[in-house]
Design a protein around this nucleic acid. Structure first.
Length: 308
DNA sequence: GAAATTTGACCATA
DNA sequence: TATGGTCAAATTTC
């Protein structure tokens, strides 16, 4: 019952945060369109990032709770000791060396879902990483590099990533992200305004794309590929944002949240208005904000700036 | 001298 | 016991 209640509370907080993001994004759009004020724009971007970070935090905690509640008895041994029922926060038993080592191990062997990406270049992903290891991997000619967030000790940020050249295609890299950033470092505005560069990059996080023709293309790929069963419009919401529907038919105020049983959680928020529906003739472009949340991780990666 | 990287060692897991 | 993830001392860079 507690879980249900907390889910309801989380959902309310989620909606609140999404609405905040929507409001700030509208302000940002107007700011750029009317004033081109970069200073104020950066401030708004910071607010938007905060709003989305809170949203993702709410989602992550809900998902993790759900995950643990569904873990089978044979899998429970992999749960960190501090999350098990016989250990409360701040009172972990660390009397023996074995226990200490167990604790260290539990920090190492993370159980959170990883996000794996393939990229052709190691571009700045908006976070500051510190390399802490390199390892030769069996049957691979390329070593694996281990990075942690620079702010791990300053702010307790647990995000890590592993980078390794792909054996079949050494010009490309496989990047595995684990954990999500809790550090309070915002990337510069030029890196926040981005979209996925290619269809093969499965995660697109934010898009202010004004080109209707390529607007949906990267998103359709990732949006539907993870659903077991694609929900119908009626099942979701009359105000839902439908990435594969002509935008002229979509609502100017759209929210979307679709948790799946075992896949990533997806959320999309569509803002702005269409050319031929808008009463306001000054609004001549579609300006949309989309957000995709991967289970257990926040991945602001492959940030590629673009022009308005 | 501080910060970042390198690299051998340690340890849990399979 | 081999393997991979992490630690931490040594080394390098700025």
């Amino acid at each position: 019952m507690e879980i249900i209640n907390s889910s309801v509370v989380d959902m309310r907080r989620l909606i609140e945060e999404l609405n905040c993001g929507k409001k700030f994004t509208n302000e940002l759009r107007d700011l750029i369109k009317k004033h081109n004020n970069i200073m104020l724009a950066e401030d708004l971007v910071g607010k938007i990032m905060t709003s989305f970070s809170k949203t993702l935090s709410i989602l992550s905690s809900s998902v993790e709770l759900h995950q643990f509640s569904q873990v089978s008895s044979c899998e429970k041994s992999s749960i960190p000791s501090c999350l098990s029922s016989n250990c409360t926060i701040g009172s972990c038993k660390t009397s023996s060396l074995k226990d200490v080592n167990q604790e260290r191990c539990n920090k190492r062997r993370k159980i959170s879902a990883a996000t794996i990406k393939e990229v052709s270049t190691l571009v700045d992903d908006g976070h500051v990483w510190r390399k802490y290891g390199q390892k030769e991997i069996l049957n691979s000619p390329h070593p694996r590099n281990y990075y942690r967030c620079t702010y791990k000790f300053d702010q307790g940020c647990e995000a890590t990533k592993q980078v390794q050249k792909i054996q079949e295609n050494p010009s490309r890299f496989s990047i595995t992200y684990q954990g999500h950033h809790t550090c309070k470092i915002y990337p510069p505005i030029s890196q926040i305004l981005f979209e996925s560069s290619t269809n093969e990059d499965s995660s697109m996080l934010l898009s202010f794309n004004s080109n209707t023709n390529n607007y949906y293309q990267p998103y359709v790929h990732s949006f539907h590929s993870t659903y077991k069963q694609e929900p119908t419009k009626e099942e979701i919401s009359p105000n839902c944002f439908y990435p594969n529907v002509d935008q002229s038919q979509s609502s100017s105020k759209s929210g979307y949240f679709q948790p799946s049983d075992d896949g990533p959680i997806r959320a999309a928020l569509s803002l702005g208005s269409s050319d031929h529906r808008a009463n306001d003739s000054s609004c001549t472009t579609n300006c949309s904000l989309e957000m995709e949340m991967m289970l257990g991780s926040v991945d602001f990666v492959d940030l590629i700036p673009f022009d308005f």
